[in-house]
Simulated assay, not measured.
Amino acid sequence: MTTGFETAAQALRERYSQLKAEKPKARIRTLAHEMAVSEVELVAAGCGGIQSIILREPAQEVFNELGSLGRVMALTRNEWAVHERHGKYEDIRAGKTMGIVVGPDIDLRMFFSNWKSTWAVNDDGRLSLQFFDTAGEAIHKVYVTDETDVDAYHALVKKYADPDPAWPVLAPVQARQEETPVQDPAQLRDEWLAMKDTHQFFSLLQRHKATRLAALRAVGPDLAQELPNDAAERMLQAVAARDIPFMCFVGNRGMIQIHSGPIKKLMRAGPWFNVLEPHFNLHLDTTAIASTWVVNKPTADGWVTSMECYESNGDLIAQFFGARKPGVPELAAWRELLVEYCPVSLAA
């Protein structure tokens, strides 16, 4: 490594050690924010005793080989929700700008425009592959477990290790779209009612130059209505009590990670409401939820309803659906549960 690399790394290690001593339970992402640096810089510097190896770009080449590791733990998060899912990467399709993983356990949607670097990380013996965006924020992490092929992990790291590592060069990501009122709510509603697939929603927003929240506010309460912000916690409790299989989506600017199935074990820990299954964990900071919506979309298979939680800046924290596959109508028990929360009747 270059002298410049080591000089920058040493300065960060010293700052990190001091802050970590003051806040021993704080995670690396939190400490990065407090230090006004990116998480990838702390990983590159080896802060907290981390051993890290940068892998060659593009990240898609590494991603396409994750199936060789066997069962791992996949982690995707944003500021307010953490989604952890155990399983094997299967049916991986990582293209130039988009990708998908559609295994029975690990279910992902990738958006590669902002992806930048990939690191192999050894954090006190805990091995992982970590993918970061151009601003140095973590997009996705893959952790070795007792069921992982560790030899395959080391072989993958050796194959893609960058022979000439350099200090991360950061670039800001595109600023979020500011929320402004929808210009033609009636047209938006007509096009919403004409949808045949939930995936058409994104193009609907693009045509109207609308944020998600602006569209929800404009379309009418039979299609989108706001609920009290304890609704997500009540929904998770009801899903567990009634044994309703559901889908939980958590994402960031480069990834969406999905769990499908029932849940049972729930636990509150401070601001975090947690789902703690052997194969699936969700950590949801309910104090960050600024608005909660039930959203009702028509499809070729009938109406599909979701619960969506947003942060005060308009970012989507998490989405929840009834468990379903394309070509299959929505689960009646899920629909009935969300209808219970709605003071205004949903379109049906």
Score class of each variant (00 low, 15 high):
Thr7Ala: 15
Thr97Arg: 14
Arg15Phe: 00
Glu65Gly: 01
Ala59His: 09
Ala238His: 08
Glu277Ala: 10
Pro168Phe: 02
Arg324Val: 12
Leu337Glu: 01
Arg234Lys: 14
Cys47Asn: 00
Ala333Leu: 00
Gln225Met: 05
Ala171Phe: 09
Ser117Ile: 06
Thr148Lys: 09
Gln200Phe: 08
Pro24Asn: 09
Val250Arg: 11
Ser128Asn: 01
Met73His: 13
Arg217Thr: 00
Val82Gly: 08
Trp272Tyr: 14
Ser345Gly: 11
Ala347Glu: 05
Ile100Val: 13
Asp162Thr: 01
Trp293Val: 08
Ile244Asp: 03
Pro326Leu: 05
Glu277His: 07
Gly270Arg: 09
Lys158Tyr: 03
Phe202Gln: 14
Ala44Glu: 09
Ser345Tyr: 02
Leu156Tyr: 01
Arg253Tyr: 04
Leu19Cys: 03
Val169Pro: 01
Ser312Tyr: 14
Ala32Met: 06
Asp285Val: 00
Tyr143Phe: 15
Ala152Gln: 03
Lys209Val: 05
Thr145Ile: 15
Leu205Gln: 06
Pro262Val: 15
Gln174Ile: 06
Cys47Ser: 01
Ala318Gly: 06
Leu213His: 12
Glu34Thr: 13
Asn313Val: 00
Ser17Gly: 15
Glu65Thr: 05
Asp301Ser: 11
Asp105Asn: 05
Leu236Gln: 04
Val169Met: 10
Asp133Glu: 00
Pro24Trp: 01
Gln206Leu: 11
Pro228Asn: 14
Phe321Asn: 10
Thr76Arg: 11
His33Ala: 11
Asp301Val: 13
Ile28Met: 10
Leu12Ser: 08
Leu227Val: 05
Ile53Glu: 08
Leu127Cys: 06
Trp119Ile: 04
Gly251Val: 06
Val72Tyr: 07
Gly125His: 09
Met195Phe: 13
Leu108Trp: 05
Ile92Lys: 04
Arg268Leu: 13
Arg207Leu: 14
Ser17Ile: 09
Tyr341Ser: 10
Ala81Lys: 06
Met73Ser: 13
Glu179Leu: 10
Gln10Trp: 05
Asp315Arg: 12
Asp315Gly: 10
Ala186Met: 13
Cys342Trp: 05
Glu191Leu: 15
Leu284Lys: 02
Leu66Thr: 00
Glu39Met: 08
Ser260Asp: 02
Ile258Pro: 00
Val295Trp: 01
Ile28Trp: 06
Pro172Ser: 00
Phe111Gly: 00
Gly302Glu: 10
Phe280Arg: 07
Gly270Gln: 03
Ile53Leu: 03
Ile258Arg: 03
